[in-house]
């Protein structure tokens, strides 16, 4: 275990981030953000590693990970689709968008698709309420003023991008 963490470049990247923090006090959430960015999710061994590195109990790390909905202990799809169900999106039919996305991907909850490409998450307000209903693919691709019939095309565009590679 220890050896693996030393050689795995992902752990090395995380360690470098932690070592460069000017002050470790109160930085657990920041470290978890970084770890999730690197690993895609926060499995037990990553939490264990962080606990040791920051010299805090593993239960504290676990407690924080489970408290915040942004952190996940399960892997997510390569493209994470966040469908907004905030108030503005809800009154403008966000639920229909979410239903259509799930139907298109053949998933029922937040589990990734069988090819690992996508996973869906229903979220509270992406801050683009004036464009409601809204969804976000990955970190940066916002789609606003959606209607259910626009969904297949959007998803297809990501599939095509993957096939090209």
């Amino acid at each position: 275990m220890e050896n693996q963490t030393l050689t795995d470049p992902k752990f090395a990247e995380l360690d470098e981030f932690i070592d460069n923090l000017p002050d470790k006090k109160g930085m657990l959430i920041g470290v978890l953000h970084k770890a999730q960015e690197i690993f895609g999710y926060l499995p037990a061994e990553v939490q264990h590693h962080i606990a040791q590195k920051l010299d805090i109990p593993e239960s504290t790390v676990f407690g924080v990970v489970t408290f915040y909905s942004f952190f996940t202990m399960k892997p997510r799809g390569k493209y994470q689709i966040k469908v907004c169900l905030g108030t503005a999106c809800y009154v403008k039919g966000g639920q229909k968008i979410s239903d259509r996305v799930k139907e298109e991907l053949g998933v029922t909850g937040d589990e990734p698709t069988s090819d690992g490409l996508f996973s869906v998450q229903e979220v509270r307000c992406l801050g683009a309420c004036s464009m409601a209903p809204v969804m976000l693919v990955g970190e940066r691709d916002f789609y606003g003023r959606l209607t259910p019939d626009k969904i297949p095309q959007i998803i297809e565009s990501y599939r095509r991008k993957e096939n090209k590679k």
Binding site: M27, I29, L32, V64, F67, F70, R124
Partner: peptide, 26 residues
């Protein structure tokens, strides 16, 4: 900057302080 992690209650000021300290935002 301190980045939140998706908990509405952290907008409440005492919970927010907990969260800035890196803890569960209760």
């Amino acid at each position: 900057l301190r980045i939140g992690a998706g908990a509405f209650v952290c907008g409440e000021e005492t919970a927010l302080i907990q969260s800035v300290e890196g803890k569960r935002g209760q």
